[in-house]
Each structure stands twice: as structure tokens, then as C-alpha cells.
């Protein structure tokens, strides 16, 4: 009961701050609302006993990526951006996307709760905490995908550094 009401609060906060992200004219305010969204999603992770995911969500997204967003946004002229009308060109695409999403949701509601069922997650052993369980799955069951993903990220990073350096020199 408590968990459900906490979930409802977090969900409402996440969704309403998500709406705020796209309706604010000032990009810095958008970023602040995006941080609120990420926080409430982190709270939902915590509600599912995924402490590791919660911590990583805050460290990576809130503590890392959003700081860089702010860093970039602070350097652009906020006043001129605020005067421009956003999404005036993409409204047709946006409407299409909304229609598709609405159809999917309607279909889900139509077929009932069972269609949302994702299968019961396997409980980790009692003597193992959340972090170890995540590590075990990542490095035992999905070793190759993890390595490929990390290699891709490394290549992207080196590429970015190289491009920045070329322009600098």
C-alpha cells in the first residue's frame, strides 16, 4: 500500500516534470525539470529494490550528463532561444508519433493487464546484494555485449577527442 502510493507520487512527479521539460521556454529551466524527472525515475528503481541502478542513475545522468548539458546551455544565448517558437516545424511528425503511441497504449488497455506482464524476475541468492547480482549477470551471462558496448563507447570517446584536437590545431 505504502509502496504503491510512493510509486504513484513518483510517477506523477516524473510525468509532470517531463511535461515541464518540453513546455519551458528557458532551456536552463528545462534542464532543471529533466533532473527532477531523472530523480523520480531513480526513486522508482529504488522502489523495485534496484539500489545499484538508482545510484548509477543519479551518478551518471544527474551528476554527469546533466552537468554537461547545463555547461553547454549556459554558453548559448538563453534570451534569443526563449523568443524562438520551438517545434513549429516538426509538429506533423510529433502528431504522428503521438498517434502511434496512443494506439499502442489503447491496444494495451484493450487487451488487459496480462499483456503488460513481463514475467517474474528471478530472485538473486539471499547472500548476494543487488550490486553483486547485477555484476554477475553483466559479466557472466552478457559478457560479449558488454565488451562490445564498452569498445564502442571507447571508440566514440577517442573519435571525439581527435575531432576536437584537429579543430584546435
Amino acid at each position: 500500500m505504502l509502496a504503491q502510493s510512493v510509486f504513484l507520487i513518483l510517477a506523477v512527479v516524473a510525468l509532470s516534470s517531463g511535461v515541464m521539460v518540453i513546455t519551458r521556454r528557458n532551456p536552463v529551466h528545462s534542464v532543471i525539470w529533466l533532473i527532477v524527472t531523472l530523480f523520480s525515475v531513480g526513486g522508482i528503481f529504488l522502489l523495485q529494490y534496484a539500489q545499484f541502478l538508482f545510484a548509477v542513475q543519479i551518478i551518471l545522468y544527474v551528476g554527469g550528463i546533466m552537468v554537461l548539458y547545463l555547461f553547454v546551455i549556459m554558453l548559448i544565448r538563453v534570451e534569443t532561444v526563449a523568443k524562438q517558437a520551438p517545434y513549429s516545424r516538426q509538429w506533423a511528425i510529433g502528431l504522428g508519433a503521438v498517434l502511434v503511441l496512443a494506439c499502442e497504449l489503447m491496444y494495451g488497455v484493450y487487451t488487459g493487464v496480462e499483456s503488460f506482464h513481463l514475467g517474474t524476475p528471478s530472485r538473486p541468492p539471499v547472500d548476494m546484494n543487488n550490486t553483486e547480482a547485477v555484476a554477475g549477470v553483466l559479466y557472466n551471462n552478457y559478457m560479449l555485449p558488454v565488451e562490445i558496448a564498452s569498445l564502442l563507447l571507447l571508440v566514440a570517446m577517442v573519435g571525439a577527442v581527435l575531432m576536437a584536437k584537429k579543430r584546435f590545431e
Binding site: I35, Q51, F52, F54, A55, V56, I58, I59, V62, G63, G64, V67, L70, N129, N130, T131
Partner: peptide, 16 residues
């Protein structure tokens, strides 16, 4: 049980 991660996460918010 994720105390260390919590420390890193919350202390990185001070930058905001």
C-alpha cells in the same frame, strides 16, 4: 548496501 555509490551520487549534486 550501496553506501559508497550513494556518497558519490549525492555529493556530485553539490555542483548544481
Amino acid at each position: 548496501n550501496v553506501g559508497l555509490l550513494f556518497v558519490v551520487a549525492v555529493s556530485s549534486l553539490g555542483i548544481y
